[in-house]
Design a binder for these strands. Sequence first.
DNA 1: ACAGTTTCGTTGACGGGTCAATTAATTTGT
DNA 2: ACAAATTAATTGACCCGTCAACGAAACTGT
Lengths: 158, 158
Amino acid sequence: MPHPQTQPDSDAHPAGPLPLHQFLTYRLSRVQAKLNAQATRLLRDTSGITLAQWRVIALIGAAGQTRLSALAREAALDKGLVSRNLKTLIGDGLVSTRTDDSDHRAQILQLTRTGQDIYERTLPIMQARQKRLRDGLSETELESFRRVLDHLEIAAEE
Amino acid sequence: MPHPQTQPDSDAHPAGPLPLHQFLTYRLSRVQAKLNAQATRLLRDTSGITLAQWRVIALIGAAGQTRLSALAREAALDKGLVSRNLKTLIGDGLVSTRTDDSDHRAQILQLTRTGQDIYERTLPIMQARQKRLRDGLSETELESFRRVLDHLEIAAEE
DNA sequence: ACAGTTTCGTTGACGGGTCAATTAATTTGT
DNA sequence: ACAAATTAATTGACCCGTCAACGAAACTGT
């Protein structure tokens, strides 16, 4: 008896609710993918940079001056990833580096003039997008959403 | 004057709230990454399969019988991705295929005995995990969470 | 002063995921 | 009946993100 199933075969699940839909992690990853795609599109069309590049630029722009390790640590980004993105950003002339005098391993990162321009031009665009995403959501809903995210994040660390 | 900034340099942002933290998309991607990592660990330790493989198995297991295109369409997974995962699943003897008689392009997918076993063993594990994740969250919070996810998903499609 | 450890950043390898091109089979329109 | 369009599945190219290994520089303790 290899098939202790209720129904034999044919009309099993033509378009019914798939089992994955009950999993909130599945919903989460779908939504996240779409949001990423949207952000990537937006950045490509308006500023010609990738999402990962934008994250690095935003971090440097906000900090004014940092080092790779600080970025990676504070934003919980992978060192290697940041390093690679940085390489292209430096190549494109958006970020400048100079080695730290007091620590010759470290490099001090800073936006160039061009990088600063892009930062200042892109920041409001991305903030406007965030506003658009939140549009129609009440403050209560947002708070609850953040609470659930916090909860999930903690629950995921086990 | 390349620096029209308020503060010159040093104590810019030692550990203050980074700009990214206000972006809920950033929070979302962080949480999602951690959840994924957790699921990957869990599956590796208990069933020896990857997350993507599990998704495919779960879909086939629930449907009983399907075709690749149906899976990809209904679960909004990439065709190529499913195809590759399927290849290893077939190689590992978890999924069997036979070409559809009424459509020689299509293949009918089904779990093998082993695949079925893994499915039946893994499903409760994953459901228990979902339960654990939800633990401590009220039904109201979950509903609100899903509503916000729906909202974001729609808002991301533009 | 110097062996051991830690930290900084780079790099290689790998899996996950998306996109586009391709082949083969099927359906559609005339 | 047959050319054109559609659909099924595979494949290759590519980016993103994670992990581990590494060389170089800097600390640590004795």
